[in-house]
């Protein structure tokens, strides 16, 4: 294996008139966590399915552990753990039984030590004799993850692993994932959540079957060549409408009690403008660091106007 665990290269795939993958390229490096970030319909799940060899590409290349996933044998498949969005747990089996079932499915000999380790890692030990359908949603997700790990894969593909999970459980899930990374696993995951993508080592911004940009969250934020000012003011709606008409302002977004104002010129602090907004009382102005959401929205805006 060279410098990539898996890769798509100029991959294209159409479902009828829908171009699900439109020349997408990215590669997962050994030991990293790469996040595919994009809206519904961006092609995230299709990309994972192509990498697993579940759908054939129309053109381009897919590689999983150095091989064509469509041709790869069972030995390679056992090196991969895949958590789909609609994961399959057996609701009428217990936590223990689910893990045993998946271990047998992957022909793991003597799975008991692995099971004990996974129960400890996921803190599901106290619930091991509970039926899976009696667990909370967050615990079910953790059990599903444990089931994808029972055969000790080297690569994990996780399709929106934390959608619908509350923040307390989400953070536990991230602690778990970082422990796996520390053990040398390579992780490819998809997420629609921008705050979650910030937790990945590298992020591929996806839209309409293509990768717009792929880099570390910090480097992606560095591509934001505007200034972002947070303005706390009242009435905020009036300020939004006034600033929205200003040529020096690229974009205004209202967030409850405050505005995020993107200036065209990074040197422009808009001080004079903000001091003279008729009928608006400005109580605080400061620079804020752009989030991946800001980067993403600017990218899409630039694509649309290009």
């Amino acid at each position: 294996m060279t410098g990539e665990v898996l890769a798509l290269e100029d991959a294209r795939l159409a479902f009828g008139s829908l171009q699900a993958l439109d020349g997408i390229s990215f590669a997962l490096r050994p030991g990293e966590m790469l996040g595919l970030l994009g809206p519904d319909g961006a092609g995230k799940t299709t990309a994972l399915r192509a990498l697993l060899g579940l759908v054939p590409l129309d053109s381009g290349r897919a590689a999983l552990l150095g091989e064509d996933p469509r041709a790869a044998g069972a030995a390679h498949r056992t090196a991969v753990g895949y958590l789909s969005q609609r994961f399959t747990l057996y609701g009428d089996l217990t936590v223990d039984e689910n893990l045993a079932f998946f271990a047998r499915l992957f022909r793991v000999r003597d799975f008991r030590p692995a099971r004990e380790r996974l129960l400890e890692l996921t803190r599901l030990g106290p619930f091991r004799r509970l039926r899976a359908d009696r667990l909370s949603g967050g615990m079910q997700k953790k059990l599903a993850l444990a089931c994808t790990l029972v055969h000790a894969p080297r690569v994990l593909l996780l399709d929106e692993p934390t959608t619908g999970v509350d923040p307390v459980t989400r953070r536990e899930f991230w602690l778990l994932l970082s422990g796996l990374l520390a053990q040398g696993l390579s992780v490819l995951l998809t997420t629609p959540y921008l705050d979650e993508a910030e937790r990945c080592g590298r992020v591929a911004l996806m839209r309409a079957g293509r990768v717009l940009a792929c880099d570390s969250p910090a480097a992606l934020r560095g591509t934001f060549r505007h200034r972002l000012r947070e303005v706390v003011c009242a009435p905020a709606r009036v300020a939004r409408d006034l600033l929205g008409r200003e040529p020096r302002v690229a974009e205004v977004q209202l967030f409850g009690d405050r505005l995020h104002v993107v200036t065209r010129d990074p040197a422009d602090g808009l001080e004079d403008l903000l001091a003279r907004l008729p009928g608006v009382a400005v109580s605080a102005v400061r620079d804020v660091a752009p989030t991946l959401e800001d980067v993403f929205i600017r990218r899409i805006g630039e694509e649309a106007s290009a």
Binding site: G38, P39, D40, A42, E160, T163, G164, P192, L194, Q253, E293, F296, I297, I300
Partner: peptide
């Protein structure tokens, strides 16, 4: 939940 930031905005 689960939609992209443009749609959320």
């Amino acid at each position: 939940s689960g939609v992209d930031p443009l749609m959320r905005r």
